[in-house]
């Protein structure tokens, strides 16, 4: 089954063609970082405008690269939320009209569910249900138990800042560019992770929830201190990153103590972090449990993961109606997918 995926939930205009939820025939993505960098963050109005300008050409480009035509695809998958409403509507409108014009089924996908299936793109292994997903991005940080394509539950989530948000804010404190997460990762590679003992969040109630605002504040106070003024930025970055990774991997360990997961899956933009990938691989080797880590192009927002999620979750079941809308606050739980969905 060949699906065309469309992703416009934030600032990436992305289109992909994916066969059977795994083989990526083409993936086109036009990142807008250059348009947002001078503002120090994503400007929703600019993001929406760029999507309008770029999306149809991205669809055309993806079809050309895959050597196929709309008449040869089996369905169209699109992110319907969560995300920026001004961005989501562009993708949903385009996807619906493509489905209508080509008389192909339309599949609505939760952006976060897309991330859960990104690690299985371009790989042959069967998906090892049940698995634990560590979903970490600029907007989300959560541990998800995935028992099947539509059977998943959140075991722990951030109580304040998302991991990626903490990276970006700390990068700003260090005077790094935007987006700051990748810059901080590169800087940290040259620093001493034990140079500064930043705090690690440990919930007293034994939950698997996460928190990063205290860490971010500790970095700010440190940088405002005499010792901080004299500290090497690389040491600050490495010590901050060590604290984040300690918290994330401690929760992973705790989650595996709760249930017999068969694998750990990293997902989300922060999964592209080299230190997190190394920590997950080391954990996997030590525990003898498989770790699925997507390549960087599938960690950040992309459309291949949307087509993959549609294949695994929807393509064999229900299609969505052309009255489909967008929901910027779409809940994570799969049971809340469009109630008007009809059987093919």
């Amino acid at each position: 089954m060949l699906l065309l995926g469309i992703e416009t939930s934030c600032d990436d205009t992305a289109v992909a063609l994916v066969r059977d939820g795994r083989d990526v025939l083409a993936a086109v993505s036009t990142n807008q970082d250059a348009f947002h960098a001078k503002y120090g963050g994503i400007v929703p109005e600019i993001a929406g405008r760029r999507h309008v300008a770029l999306l149809s050409a991205a669809v055309d480009d993806a079809l050309t690269r895959a050597g196929t035509a709309l008449s040869e695809i089996d369905g169209i998958a699109v992110t319907v939320g969560p995300g920026l409403i001004g961005s989501l509507v562009v993708g949903v409108a385009a996807a619906k009209a493509l489905a209508y014009a080509s008389d192909r089924p339309l599949f609505a996908v939760n952006h976060l569910h897309g991330h859960l299936f990104a690690a299985f793109l371009d790989r042959r292994e069967p998906i090892p249900y049940p698995f634990l997903a560590l979903l970490v991005s600029g907007g989300h940080s959560q541990l998800v138990a995935v028992e099947g394509p539509l059977a998943m539950s959140v075991l722990g989530r951030t109580r304040d800042d998302a991991a990626g948000e903490a990276y970006d804010k700390t990068a700003r404190l260090l005077g790094l560019g935007y987006p700051g997460g990748a810059e901080l990762d590169r800087l940290a590679a040259r620093g001493d992770p034990a140079a500064i003992a930043f705090p690690r969040h440990r919930p007293r109630d034994g939950s698997l929830d996460l928190s990063f605002s205290g860490l971010k504040t500790a970095v700010r106070y440190f940088l405002e201190s005499e010792r901080g003024a004299a500290a090497a930025p690389a040491d600050v970055a490495a010590s901050f990153q060590a604290a984040v990774l300690d918290v994330l991997m401690a929760r992973v360990e705790a989650a595996f103590a709760c249930a017999p997961f068969r694998a750990l899956v990293l997902a989300g933009g922060v999964a592209a972090n080299s230190a997190l990938q190394a920590a997950a691989q080391a954990w996997s080797a030590r525990r003898g449990i498989a770790a699925f880590i997507p390549p960087p192009r599938y960690c950040t927002d992309n459309a291949a993961m949307i087509a993959a999620a549609a294949f695994h979750q929807r393509a064999l079941g229900a299609r969505d109606p052309l009255t489909l809308g967008a929901d910027p606050n779409l809940p994570f739980e799969p049971s809340l997918l469009n109630a008007d969905a009809a059987l093919i």
Binding site: G48, L55, V89, V90, A94, A97, A101
Partner: peptide, 19 residues
Amino acid sequence: RFTGLRIAIGYAKSLALGW
């Protein structure tokens, strides 16, 4: 209207492409 404009152009481009 910004949103209506985006939706209309999104529909129109996809229909033109599809047909």
